[in-house]
Simulated scan of single mutants.
Amino acid sequence: MSVRSFVDLRAFAAQAAEGGDLLGGTALALPDGPVSIAAARLSGGGHVAAMPADRFVVVLSGALTIDGAVLAPTGSIVLPAGVALDWQAAPDTLIVAMQCTGGPAGADRPVAIDHDAPLEPSGAPLAELLIGATPACRNHTDYRSATGEFLCGTWDSTPYFRLPMRYRHYELMHLLDGAVTFVDEAGRTATFTAGDIFLVEQGAECSWESQTFVKKVYAIYRPA
Rank of each mutant, 00 (worst) to 15 (best):
A16Q: 11
L60N: 05
R188C: 03
A219K: 05
R109I: 03
A16K: 13
A13C: 12
F198H: 15
G45R: 10
L130S: 06
G187T: 07
R166H: 13
S145V: 01
A179R: 04
D177A: 12
H115P: 00
C206K: 06
A133G: 07
A49F: 00
R4S: 14
A29P: 05
H169G: 06
M1Q: 07
F182D: 09
D86P: 02
G123E: 13
A14M: 11
G19W: 06
I220F: 09
V78R: 05
F12S: 09
D32P: 09
L42A: 12
A107D: 10
V111W: 12
T154H: 02
V35I: 04
A146W: 06
L30M: 08
A133Y: 03
G203R: 05
R10I: 08
S76T: 04
R166V: 15
P135V: 10
D21Q: 06
H115E: 11
G45M: 11
V57L: 14
T181D: 02
R4C: 09
M98K: 12
I113G: 05
M98D: 03
S210M: 08
S157V: 01
A117M: 11
G45L: 10
Q202M: 14
M98L: 14
L130M: 14
Q88D: 11
S122T: 15
A97L: 04
G102A: 04
G203D: 11
I66M: 08
R138N: 13
C137M: 14
S122Y: 14
G25Q: 11
Y221W: 15
E128V: 13
A53W: 04
P34C: 02
G62K: 08
Q88T: 14
G75C: 05
V7S: 03
G68Y: 03
L176P: 00
R166Y: 00
V48C: 09
C100F: 01
G75F: 06
D156L: 03
A72R: 08
N139P: 00
G19P: 07
R168F: 05
